[in-house]
Amino acid sequence: MFIVELGRGLWTTLRMMFEKPVTIQYPEVKRPMVARFKGRHNLHRYDNGLEKCIGCALCAAACPSDAIFVEAAENTDEVRYSPGERYASTYEINMLRCIFCGYCEDACPTEAIILGDNYELSFTDRRQAIYTKEMLILPVPEGGKSTPQKVEPGKFNRSIPLMENPKD
């Protein structure tokens, strides 16, 4: 009957009041991100602290929205940033241009650039949208040394390490 149906509707809404709210209190509580989430890029390091990025600019070439700017400089054994001949002296990503497609990640020969799980990219100024190398690079892992390092000659000649197939 009509009245019964109305009563059932009211009962349903009243019952929902005693359920746990589904709201996530965002800035205080953050949802775990899925493993393959494509957020802000990170520049990775080797375990010894050397940067993976060798300044080849393949990411900049692959970028469909031309968001990445790379400038390379020469490594020496006295002042070494990354294995091999060169390193990225300037590495900038314009987050207003970036579409988070992950092509840079695919293009990178050393797996230096990987899209992380940081999605909190807000700025009050267009200039703040340009993320520099200092902002993107991960901290030195435990047991490593920060760059530039002074290394023994002839140890880090190979720019691109021998890599296994990805497991993920």
């Binding site: 009243l14 746990k20 709210p21």
Partner: peptide
């Protein structure tokens, strides 16, 4: 607040 609770939200806080 009441609407939010009925819709299993929290409401203004």
């Amino acid at each position: 607040k009441a609407l939010a609770r009925i819709q299993t939200r929290i409401g203004p806080n």
